[in-house]
């Protein structure tokens, strides 16, 4: 009886995540009966690498959304960081250092945006809209639209084989996800993030420096964006100067589909990861099912609307 009640309680607590997971299972069931070719290691590897940037950045975006803020400049940050990683590598830096440079640049962008939001109290949508435009057009001006080519050997795939690289990235992704989840749950700093988003006034009364919390999550997200950009650049032998177009929307959509409240305070890492998997699978799934790829965005939009509607209905009931 107690176990039964406990199960119900857990199911209720995790209802949003369970809903997204069930949708994913359903999608893959359809795929399984629709076309077996989808289920190949190679296909999954490609799918994973293509969505890795979304996954990494969504961990940071989850933190930002949990504090009740938003960052729509991550796509532009991503483009700049990609180019920085490439330029650094071409300048003769070791690949690890080039990656670190991209992270540092991202952290700097995040810190600038976060600083304006946290300390000058400018709404985050305004600050990051400005950052989004300024970084994107600044990059276009400085590169004149040229791509970075002739990257040094050892940059692509980190001089690993593609499958080894994929495995390494999988390990990294799992570690990042676990670290974020554990940090949110067991670190005082993680609890401060949730507290700030749940009620900023109460957090301040409790002695939490909410401005520092907000600043930190923006800077951390910037660093994660830099990391994602560097790792993504390593998949190709040239780096486009317009990388990450629309990344911010994919990331925000994944976090929201994963059940996070856009108003802050509520949301989980598992949910965000499931959101990335669901939205990331839809596109290729359509191709395999023989549906025109033009439907992808429309279906993603429908998923987002459905997720938000279900979340709202659930919250009303509470």
């Amino acid at each position: 009886m107690r176990i039964f009640e406990e199960t119900i309680r857990l199911a209720r607590t995790w209802s949003r995540e369970i809903g997204v997971a069930a949708t994913i299972v359903l999608l893959y069931a359809v795929l399984f009966f629709g076309g077996r070719t989808y289920f190949s290691a190679e296909n999954f590897g490609d799918l994973f690498l293509a969505n890795l940037p979304v996954l990494i950045v969504s961990l940071g975006m989850l933190l930002i959304i949990l504090t009740g803020q938003i960052d729509i400049s991550v796509g532009s940050q991503f483009a700049v960081c990609s180019v920085i990683a490439g330029v650094a590598a071409k300048a003769g830096m070791p690949v690890a250092l080039a990656g670190l440079a991209a992270c540092a640049a991202g952290a700097l962008f995040g810190a600038i945006g976060g600083g304006l939001v946290a300390f000058l109290r400018i709404p985050s949508i305004v600050v990051t809209l400005a950052m989004m435009i300024a970084l994107r057009d600044g990059l276009r001006w400085s590169t004149q639209g040229a791509w970075i080519e002739n990257l040094p050997p050892g940059f692509q795939w980190l001089s690993l084989t593609q499958s080894r690289f994929t495995t390494a990235m999988a390990v990294l992704a799992v570690a990042l996800v676990a670290a974020t989840a554990a940090g949110l749950r067991y670190l005082k700093a993680g609890r401060a993030v949730l507290a700030t988003g749940s009620s900023e006034a109460a957090a301040r009364i409790t002695g939490i420096r909410t401005d520092r919390v907000v600043f930190s999550v923006f800077a951390l997200t910037g660093a994660l964006t830099g990391l994602a950009a560097a790792l993504n650049a390593m998949r190709f032998h040239q780096i486009p100067s317009n990388a990450g177009l629309g990344l911010e929307m994919k990331v925000i959509a994944a976090v929201v589909v994963g059940g996070a409240a856009i108003t802050g305070g509520s949301g989980t890492v598992i949910g965000a990861v499931l959101g990335v998997i669901l939205l990331g699978s839809v596109g290729t799934a359509l191709t395999f099912l023989g549906v025109s790829a033009y439907w992808e965005q429309a279906i993603q939009g429908a998923i987002i609307l459905a997720a938000v509607a279900i979340n709202l209905a659930g919250r009303r009931r509470e």
Binding site: L187, K188, R191, A195, S198, S199, A201, A202, I205, T206
Partner: peptide
Amino acid sequence: PALFPHLTVAENIALPMEMGSSRQTVNW
């Protein structure tokens, strides 16, 4: 009431006690 609506009762009670300590982790 100036509580954190999205956080549990236990956490609402515990947070102010923990803010003063130097421990960086929480014990649920």
